[in-house]
C-alpha cells in the first residue's frame, strides 16, 4: 500500500504527469458525466435549428440536420475513448502474454519473436482498412450494426498493436528470470505459472503501465484515422474521427465543427502522453524516492 501511495505522490509531484492526469480525468468525466449536465440528445434532429453558429442554446452550434454539436462531441468521446481503452486492453493482454512467454520459455522465444518481427513489418493502415471492409457485414450480422463495428474496430486495432508491449515485456522478463528472488522461488518448487504470475508479472507492471498510456493514445488516433477515411464508425453513431471527417465539407462556413472533435482528440492524446511520460519517470526506481 505504501508503495502505491509513494507512486501516487511522485506522480503528483511530476508536473507533466499531474497536468496530464488531471486533464485526462477531466475528459473522462466530461464525456461520461457530461450528458447529465447537458441533457440534449446527440441524435435529435431539429430542422428549424439547422447550421446554427455557437450560441447560448447550442454552445458549439448545430450541424446540417440541427443536431447539437456539443452533445455529439460528448457522445463521440464516449465511443472514441471506449474503443481506445478496449483496443489498448487487448493489445496489452496479448503483448504481455506473448512477451512473458517469449522471455520465460527459451523454446518459444525464437518463434514468438519472429512473429513479432513479422507483425512489425506488416503495412498496418492498409491492412486495417482491408479488415474493416471485409468483416464489416458478417460481424454486423452477429453483434448488430453498432456492436459489430465496435467489435471489429477494437479487435482490428488490438490485434495489430501488441508488438511494442511484447518486446518490452520480453526484455524485462529475460532480465528478471535470472534474478535471485526468481531463482529462490524456483528452488522452493514454484511452478512456471506461479513464477510468471506471482514473481515476474508484478515486476514488469511498470513498463506495461507506460505502454498502456502510449497504446491508448495510438489506438484513439488509429480509430479516428479509420473513421476519417470513412471505414470506421458510420455517421449515425459517430466517433470523434467520424465527426471531424463529416464536418470537413462544411469547413469554410462552420470551422468549429472540425475544431471541436479535433481538439478533443488532440487534448486526449496530449494528456495521455504526458501521463505516460510521468509514469515512466515516477516508476523508474533509479530516480530515488
Amino acid at each position: 500500500m505504501s508503495e502505491r501511495a509513494s507512486l501516487l505522490r511522485r506522480l503528483a509531484r511530476h508536473p507533466g504527469a499531474a497536468t496530464g492526469g488531471v486533464l485526462f480525468a477531466a475528459i473522462l468525466a466530461a464525456v461520461w458525466l457530461g450528458p447529465l449536465l447537458w441533457p440534449l440528445a446527440p441524435d435529435v434532429i431539429d430542422v428549424r435549428a439547422r447550421n446554427l453558429g455557437p450560441g447560448l442554446a447550442h454552445p458549439l452550434g448545430t450541424d446540417q440536420l440541427g443536431r447539437d454539436t456539443l452533445a455529439r462531441v460528448l457522445a463521440g468521446g464516449r465511443l472514441s475513448l471506449s474503443v481506445g481503452l478496449a483496443a489498448m486492453a487487448i493489445a496489452l493482454g496479448l503483448g504481455t502474454l506473448i512477451g512473458v512467454c517469449a522471455g520465460f520459455f527459451r523454446r518459444l522465444d525464437g518463434p514468438l519473436m519472429r512473429l513479432t518481427d513479422l507483425f512489425l513489418a506488416l503495412p498496418l493502415l492498409p491492412l486495417l482498412l482491408v479488415m474493416l471492409l471485409l468483416f464489416r457485414d458478417s460481424l454486423a450480422g452477429i453483434f448488430g450494426p453498432e456492436g459489430g463495428i465496435f467489435v471489429l474496430v477494437v479487435g482490428a486495432i488490438g490485434l495489430t498493436s501488441w508488438m511494442p508491449t511484447a518486446r518490452i515485456v520480453r526484455g524485462d522478463t529475460l532480465a528478471l528470470k535470472e534474478r535471485e528472488f526468481v531463482l529462490a522461488a524456483r528452488a522452493a518448487g514454484t511452478g512456471p505459472i506461479g513464477l510468471m504470475t506471482r514473481h515476474i508479472l508484478p515486476n514488469v507492471l511498470s513498463p506495461i503501465l507506460v505502454s498502456a498510456a502510449l497504446g491508448l493514445a495510438t489506438a484513439i488516433v488509429t480509430e479516428s484515422a479509420l473513421s476519417f477515411l470513412g471505414l470506421g464508425f458510420p455517421p449515425d453513431f459517430p466517433s470523434w474521427g467520424r465527426l471531424l471527417s463529416d464536418a470537413t465539407i462544411y469547413l469554410a462556413d462552420y470551422p468549429e465543427r472540425v475544431i471541436a472533435p479535433g481538439l478533443a482528440i488532440s487534448l486526449t492524446v496530449l494528456s495521455v502522453t504526458y501521463l505516460g511520460d510521468g509514469l515512466r519517470d515516477a516508476l523508474d526506481p533509479r530516480l530515488g524516492r
Binding site: 469547413l251 470551422p255 488532440s266
Partner: peptide, 22 residues
C-alpha cells in the same frame, strides 16, 4: 514536437486549409 504528435494529419490538414485557403 508535442503538437506534431498530438495533432494527427486528419486534424492539421483541415486546419491549415481553413487558415491558409479559406
Amino acid at each position: 514536437t508535442v503538437v506534431g504528435y498530438a495533432m494527427p494529419p486528419f486534424f492539421t490538414g483541415p486546419l491549415v486549409i481553413f487558415i491558409f485557403s479559406v
